[in-house]
Each structure stands twice: as C-alpha cells, then as structure tokens.
Design a protein around this nucleic acid. Structure first.
Lengths: 185, 185
DNA sequence: CGCCCATCGGACGTCATTCTCCGGTTGGTA
DNA sequence: TACCAACCGGAGAATGACGTCCGATGGGCG
C-alpha cells in the first residue's frame, strides 16, 4: 500500500541540509550573536534561503534546534547525583562564553514565545533543584532565587555580547567570580 | 568692520533646533535604547533630517550632547568631599535605569571612537578617586578595580536594555544588591 | 524507462534605516 | 527696500535584512 507518502529527492538531502543549517547557525550565532542575519546562515550552509525557511520558519525554531543540546547537557548534569549548583553554573557560563545567543534568546523580546518560555522554565527548574544543597553548604544566600540566577547569567550574557570574542573569556571569569561572591550568604 | 561672518536666519532657530533635537533624542534613547532610529528623533523634534545631520553628523555626537550632563553630574558628585563610592554608584545606577543608552554607548562597538573613550575614561577616573576610601571602610575588596565596576554597570545595562521599562527598576535593584555584595571584601 | 512530485535554490518585493543633496525660505545688512 | 548667505526640510538613493514565490532538479516508483 505504500500508504505513507515518502519524500522523493528527499530524506537524504533534506536531513543533510537541516544538519548543515544547524551547524552554520551555531557558528553564526556564536560569532555574530543571536541577531545574526539568517541570509548569511543559508549562504554558509551552502543552501538556498528557501530551504532555510522551509526547515525553520522563523529564527526561534532555528535557535531552538541549535541549542537543544545545550539544554539537554544541562539537564543531564543537573540530574547526576552529587552535582552542585556551582557545577551547573560553570557549565552554563561556559556555554554562554561559547555563544551568548542561547541566554540572549531566553532573555530577549522573543522570550514571550511559548517555545522559549518552555526552555527557560526547564533551565529554571534544573537550577532550582540544586538550590537546597547549595544553601545547606553555605554557597548561596537564603534570599537568592533561581530567577535571580537566571538574571545574573542574563547580565553576563548582555555584557559578553558586546565584547570582541577575544576578551570574552577573561571578562567572563572576572565578572563571574564577582557574581559568585555576590550570591553567597 | 562686521568682520565676523554672522549667521543670517540663524542663531535663534539653529540653537532652538539643536535643543529640540537633544530633548527628543534623550527621550528616544530612553524609550527605545541607544539604537533608536534617528529619523524618529528628527520627527519628534519637529525638524528635518537635514537639520539633524547638520547639527550632529553621526549618532555618537548626538549621544555625547545628550549625555554631557550625566557625566558632569557624576563628576560634580564625585568631587564633593564626603562622597563615597556607594553614592557615585547609586547615581550611575539611577542614570542607567532612566536610560541604558549612556552605558550602552560606552560599552558598545562605538566604544572605539576617541570621543567615547574620553568619556569612559572620565567616568573611570571619577570612580577610581573614591576607591581608596571604600577600601578603607571595608565596602570594597582589595582586588576590585575601577574597570571591574564599569564592567559591572555594563552588565546591568546589558540586562536592563532587554527588559520592558516597567520591570527595570525592580530588577535593577535586585541585581544591584547582588553586585554590591559581590564587590565587598 | 519515464513520469511525478517532494524538495531545492535564489531572485525578488517589502520594509526599515541611514545619510546626502538640493530647491526654498528667512531675516540681517547695506 | 532688496539682496544673499546661512539655514531649513524632506525627497530619495543606498544599504541590508526578511520572508515568499516559483521554475528547476533529480530520485523513487510504476
């Protein structure tokens, strides 16, 4: 019955294009920021704009595909027993240095989009899970919430976006020690 | 000798237009951010684009005119005897809540412009002047520099830019207590 | 073997913004 | 009063990004 419509030129080229787009977008987001021109992403992926917009109707769906792994990594780490708040924040910072776009997306105007909200909530939740332990061990003030932590990372990202890539790591580390000290009791 | 060329239609309309442009720009920067369309500034000032670009050849010169007062206020405050680092930071934060554009300009790409560098240095210097006292009274860690403080304000501005105006004050205060705690010894 | 259709790529229309150019206006001065 | 230099405003060219539309392509199925 060949009931299911099977793509013709398809499954191969389509998947390859999709993958190429994600890779190109990851680099563009990293280099240029969340605002990177999609036109440029398509060019770098060696793909027409038509294909780009077919696979990813808007910037958000492309970004979600790019950062799917990032969130998964965070969740895996947070789920592992013995993981502390510091560990999670370290990873999140590392991701932010590599590309501010993820945090940008979650903080930006697009933050009103349900898909983005879902992602932010996931990050918020996995952060929240590590808070009690951090409070017990005196690493975190009683009045600091998961929201505060997200805002702090948002601040950091907001600064890094404007910095030339070369200075990001140094600056991020300076500011991060400052923030970490700030959230202590 | 009527030696000096005197403007004809001039001194009056020109000065009024200039003032109107500065006022309009201040509002636009505050509402929309440093990226506010200059076209809109001209419209709001009731002035043609030609006049805008004649008075202020580029965005930076307009912004410098707008924020001249802000820097002056900071310097006046810092020069007053008895002023502490906290006082200066409070004013700077207040200015940032009112409009992130000032800090944006100093942090952004345009930061390579000599005129902008000069302004940033002035702010850096007046901050630096209050550091010794703050260290003595235990309000500031030994290893925190004036640069760090500028970066911290830059972070805050980076976050506020992305927030709807209504949430700015609350968020700024939360993050600011966190930062202030962070710079303590 | 040849048709068919899912998929491809990029040309194109739209829109927002920047900045320039130039004909028109005005008021001080002779 | 009449001239004209300085100033005015806005039309519009240039740029760069977005998102759509459509003719071309080529792999699978009959």
């Amino acid at each position: 019955m060949t009931a299911t419509r099977r793509p013709n030129r398809g499954p191969r080229a389509a998947a390859a294009n999709r993958a190429a787009l994600i890779t190109a977008a990851r680099e563009a987001f990293s280099a240029t920021g969340y605002d990177a021109p999609l036109t440029e992403v398509a060019r770098a992926a060696g793909v027409g704009q038509g294909s780009l917009y077919r696979h990813f109707p808007d910037r958000i769906s492309l970004a979600l595909a790019v950062f799917k792994d990032s969130v998964a990594d965070l969740e895996t780490l947070a789920a592992r027993p013995g993981t502390t708040l510091d560990d999670v924040l370290d990873l999140l910072t590392e991701q932010t240095i590599a590309s501010t776009a993820f945090v940008d997306m979650v903080t930006l105007a697009s933050a009103s989009d349900p898909r983005v909200i879902e992602v932010r909530d996931r990050v918020g939740n996995l952060l929240a899970g590590t808070l009690p332990e951090a409070r017990r061990t005196g690493r975190l003030g009683e009045d600091v919430t998961a929201d505060d932590l997200l805002l702090a990372v948002g601040m950091l990202a907001g600064l890094l976006t404007r910095l030339p890539a070369a200075e990001r790591r140094t600056t991020a580390e300076r500011m991060w020690t400052l923030l970490r000290h700030g959230i202590e009791p």
